[in-house]
């Protein structure tokens, strides 16, 4: 017995609806995953601006800037490293527990991924600074590396110097 024409049409319609639903759910799923895992790249000025707007716990961020000369301190008991990152206009303190990468040093570019904390900490010049609790510290393979956002900010603040 051959299936009736109406039945076949229903079958085809169901297939199309199921397919569309799958594609829709899949797309939504991917978009949500994408949005949840977006990590914005900010320079210290952006962080200060964000804090002024009252947005603190805005998920994870990636902070880029130069490590302030003389700001790196390591607590020998807990193994925590603290340093201050600047883009020339604003400064943010970073706390990290772990081994810093090879190219990490004072006066060089660094990218720290982590979450901004509500608390402020004392910086080198005893002003309270925003604090980033870092999970990961990156410096690039190449020592001429400068995070592009930082380059922009430094140029804006006339602190940019061409690398030799």
């Amino acid at each position: 017995m051959r299936p009736r024409r109406g039945w076949r049409r229903t079958q085809r319609l169901t297939a199309v609806v199921v397919l569309l639903a799958c594609v829709g759910i899949g797309t939504a799923f991917v978009l949500v995953a994408l949005r949840e895992n977006v990590v914005f790249f900010l320079v210290p000025s952006d962080v200060v601006e964000r804090l002024a707007e009252g947005r603190v716990g805005d998920g994870r961020i990636r902070l880029g800037g130069l490590v302030v000369e003389g700001s790196v301190a390591r607590d020998s008991d807990s193994g925590e490293v603290r340093f201050v990152v600047t883009d020339g206009a604003a400064r943010v303190a970073v706390r990290y527990r772990g081994i810093v990468p090879d190219l990490f040093r004072e006066g060089q570019g660094v990218v720290a991924t982590g979450t901004l904390q509500a608390a402020r900490v004392e910086g080198t010049s005893s002003e309270p600074l925003p604090l980033l609790e870092a999970e990961q510290i990156l410096a690039k393979h190449d020592e001429y590396y400068m995070p592009r956002g930082v380059e922009k900010a430094l140029k804006k603040n006339n602190l940019w110097r061409e690398q030799p």
Binding site: F29, E36, N37, V38, V39, F41, R62, R148
Partner: peptide
């Protein structure tokens, strides 16, 4: 004109 990156959890989840 804002810079961002996609965290590794995205790949794991998707």
């Amino acid at each position: 004109n804002r810079t961002l990156s996609i965290g590794p959890p995205y790949y794991a989840v998707v």
